[in-house]
Write a protein that binds this DNA or RNA. Structure first.
Lengths: 352, 352
DNA sequence: ATAATTTTGACCAGCGCTGTCATCGTTGCT
DNA sequence: AGCAACGATGACAGCGCTGGTCAAAATTAT
């Protein structure tokens, strides 16, 4: 029933220590010894005891996922991706939802790491963008992988997974432009999330490329929340010249804008096109369903975990770990956006 | 930084063994010694090392949460509640999302328990209602707590937390009745979830109590999904005699019904009142916001965990564990329901 | 007061594994 | 061949805690 390292050692005719070496991927094990041990491991279906490993070594076999995000769908997707990778590599996942704005957050993270003896951490925004968190983690010599917004890998950094919000936002904006819209507003997310800044930059770039100027009144600061979308749309609709399209920084904001428009009896998409970002399930559940950008969260998460494991592996050569993977969310056109003045979208069946 | 049992012992002026006794809830520790040790534990923020405990004892200090539920908000809330209790008791939480309908599910659960050496499990629907899962767990002598729908504790059962869906549904239906509605439809959730049956029963009971007959055409089978709500509403609105109010088995279904009504240009709540169930965040983000029943998921979860710990605790006396806690979700009136024909709700300002 | 009882502590072994360091066997070199 | 140098392997202690045993101390009953 329960196979210990001892059994394997006997079976392979080596010492316990050698088996341990094999398990830990240590160098300095001769090829034939290695094979011998591996054979024994497979034959006996040996599964190392995580508790014993944790206790004996400074290292551990669990990773942590710290998050503070009101978006349940995002979190669930992330967890799913992380769990997949963890299972594959025999790690455990410890989830730790908390409040990023709490004053003692750094200590809290530190405590979590020491108490649970985490091998590493996965950080998503806002934690992935808090310098003092990263510093603390580096001080503690704990590996971590950050999932952040960005399009160009920075040299030397090997613990990041990038999401190219800029390009994705550029695409969404282009979609709106192709529909004939020129008065397009942008509803920002939280300023401290760089994703918001990146998306705004992509938005501006797309307009500029078309030779359009960016109307500062159409750029509304806000937060990643439904409420913020409600407020933002209200402000926009109070302007003397209303925009004909709104690009919201995420689906929640977009849903809020939709809600707000409805309260003001503005028909969507006829009078106002609205686009979101993220493709969260409820972007499909608004009326009309939201045009958005699909972000493959589970895949991103499992890639992040894979990257982390490359670091935490005992004899990891950090310099060898390749540059950051980059994900570009894809445009997903649904019914919340339509051509301006009822024209047909230019890329759709333009009959001659 | 790292507090061991030794530190606590010194701080409290007792031996290591006594601290261990306290930690393990062993009898034969005098009240004042117990308090003294507890004080030291709290003061030093002592958190036992799970790995060491796991290793030293046959028992383990992690519990598992198995789920298969598309509702992300529900899962996040549950996790939150479970984590709170786990933290308090020095347990770890292992989350395990999976597919309840997969053929090898029982083996999968068994493997999870043995491989991760789980002390216990928390089960929510649909797992909490699968007899073969419960049997397998009992065979393995693993403790588990089920969160199920029900209003009356069954004698002898001490590992259940009940949610009184019947009473809550009764209340919601009553609210609709008080608004003057008599033609009320019911959109069911999954048949295999007893919550759906309980809610339906509560619905029927409320109608019957008012002397109304239940129109079978107004009871639409379905699933706990947005799509199901869309379909259900479509069917209802195709009836020769449309209902004036719809009670959906959960918020997702209600949101779907709302969506569907919108597609058919039916004004909510003027032409049709819609009520949901659960008070999930997006019940606030539909337009109009949904009248629903608030289910305190986090609280329920942490109670379930507390109950589980009472079982897994070394010297637990199962017979002594009190009967199942019962939660009754509370009515939350929002804008998706309104009086029939513009009358004022009867319990509101009925001016003489 | 003394006996009976309960509570506590000292001590040891051991859970399954890893870290350290000493030892052994090889290889390379003069 | 002989010696150094290195690579591969094993012996041993110990991670932090529990479980057991037994004896000492504190409490209660008589």
């Amino acid at each position: 029933m329960k196979v210990t390292i001892n059994d394997v050692a006997k079976h392979a005719g080596v010492s316990i220590k050698t088996v341990s070496r094999v398990m830990n991927n240590e160098p300095s094990v001769r090829k034939d010894t290695f094979d011998k041990v591996m054979a024994a491991i497979n034959e006996l279906h040996y599964q190392p005891n995580a508790a014993a490993r944790n206790l004996a070594s400074t290292r551990s076999y669990s990773i942590g996922y710290i998050y503070d995000n009101p978006n349940a769908y995002y979190i669930i997707d992330m967890q799913k991706g992380l769990l997949d990778s963890c299972k594959k590599h025999g790690y455990e996942l410890l989830i730790h939802p908390t409040n990023a704005k709490s004053p003692g957050i750094v200590d809290e993270v530190k405590e979590l790491v020491t108490k649970s003896r985490l091998a590493g951490l996965i950080l998503t925004p806002p934690f992935s963008e808090m310098p003092h968190i990263a510093e603390a983690l580096e001080d503690m010599k704990v590996d971590f992988v950050r999932i952040v917004s960005g399009s160009t890998p920075s040299p030397g950094v090997h613990n990041c997974v990038l999401i190219d919000d800029f390009t994705a936002a550029f695409k969404i904006t282009n979609h709106l432009l192709e529909l004939g819209h020129t008065d397009i507003a942008f509803l920002c997310g939280d300023e401290e999330h760089s994703s918001s800044g990146e998306r705004l930059a992509g938005f501006k770039a797309a307009l500029t490329k078309r030779g359009l100027t960016v109307n500062p009144k159409y750029i509304v600061p806000g937060h990643y929340s439904f409420e913020s979308g409600v407020e933002g749309a209200k402000k926009l609709m109070a302007l003397p010249k209303r925009p004909s399209a709104v690009f919201a920084c995420n689906d929640e904001i977009a849903a809020g804008a939709l809600f707000s428009a409805r309260l003001m009896n503005i028909r969507i998409p006829d009078e106002l096109s609205i686009a979101g970002f993220e493709n969260s399930p409820f972007s499909r559940q608004t009326w009309p369903p939201l045009t958005t950008a699909h972000q493959p969260n589970s895949t991103i998460a499992s890639q992040a975990a894979e990257l982390l494991f490359k670091h935490t592996r005992p004899n990891a050569n950090k310099a060898q770990i390749q540059a950051q993977p980059v994900f570009i969310p894809e445009l997903l056109v649904r019914e919340s956006t339509s051509p301006l003045d009822g024209e047909k979208s230019s890329n759709q069946s333009a009959k001659p």
